[in-house]
Write a protein that binds this DNA or RNA. Structure first.
Length: 283
DNA sequence: AAACTCATCAACCGCGGTCTG
DNA sequence: ACAGACCGCGGTTGATGAGTT
């Protein structure tokens, strides 16, 4: 069963926006912001539009920092590299391109870049479309070792290219090094793919949106992502057991390494907001 | 000049995830 | 814990203009 419509479709205007509507929406948002509620915004702004339509118009067209047309070679490379790594996650890809929207990137990919790349003889393998695995983050290891090594959670660096959305239910995975191909130097970072959990029976890992639990028989086994209260102290003691010096290191080195753009600044430049684990830390 | 095809991109749609009461 | 409301995303559609026959 589908959800109820977000607005009365019979009483809202659809189709292309007029300059007057653009002006009304722009001036309202500039004066009052969105108020975090797009559904009620059209009425307040005097627009006969669906809230979703207003949101889309603002995000994709009226926002002051939007850049239209003319993708550069560098942007092409970034899009292609990220597409090969994470698939058609346009909002994530767009977040790496200043002033570009997910819709822009998606349209550009579908109408131009894909053809351009294929004409150049490249093969396009989206990790998602080519992978039956429902875990978006899992990319199969080429050839797993015959016997699993001892459990070892590596120091994670710049995991930013792996969208931070589904650690929640899929966390019982270790991290496997990867190198994003063909990125400009400032983006050519090393990160870790999620890969299946170790078979080491002495350690079990589980996670929720706010915590990771690793039961290794040690004295500490809980990390609270929100980093507050007693759990934070407990977590601070827990990191060394896992081989991390701090929670920032555990979460990808964003804060400790100057090489990588921190999620805070990254998300400040985009409407893509941190989610899940990252939301707790950076919102 | 008219008819047709193709390319582009703004906008819509429906769904999953998150938030809130 | 649950349900409803809302947000954000990715896929798709359709209007429009450019190019071709």
């Amino acid at each position: 069963m589908g959800r109820a419509p977000c607005c009365d479709k019979a009483n809202v205007k659809r189709g292309p926006w007029s300059p007057e509507e653009d002006t009304a929406l722009r001036s309202y948002v500039e004066r009052h912001g969105t108020g975090g509620n797009w559904i009620s915004l059209p009425q307040k702004a005097g627009l006969k539009r669906c809230g979703k339509s207003c949101r889309l118009r603002w995000l994709n067209y009226l926002r002051p920092d939007i850049k239209h047309g003319g993708f550069t070679e560098e942007e092409d490379n970034i899009i292609f590299s990220l597409y090969k790594t994470i698939g058609s996650r346009w909002s994530v890809i767009a977040s790496h391109l200043h002033g570009r929207t997910d819709n822009d990137v998606k349209n550009y990919w579908n109408t131009k870049l894909m053809k351009k790349i294929m004409a150049a003889g490249e093969t396009i393998n989206s990790p998602i479309s080519n992978n039956q695995n429902t875990n978006k983050f899992h990319q199969p290891s080429p050839s797993p070792p015959a016997t699993s090594p001892p459990v070892q959670i590596p120091v994670m660096k710049a995991e930013s290219f792996l969208p931070p959305t589904t650690l929640d239910s899929n966390f019982p995975y270790a991290f496997e090094p990867y190198q994003l191909p063909q990125l400009p130097a400032e983006l050519a970072v090393t990160g870790y793919n999620l890969c299946p959990p170790s078979e080491d029976p002495s350690l079990s890992v589980s996670a929720s949106s706010s915590s990771i639990t690793v039961d290794d028989g040690g004295t500490n086994s809980y990390i609270d992502w929100n980093g507050e209260g007693a759990y934070f102290d407990q977590a601070a003691a827990f990191f060394p057991e896992l081989g991390f010096s701090s929670w920032t290191e555990l979460l990808g080195g964003f804060v400790t390494s100057g090489t990588y753009e921190s999620p805070t600044s990254l998300w400040a430049n985009t409407d893509t907001k941190p989610q899940g684990v990252y939301q707790s830390l950076y919102s």
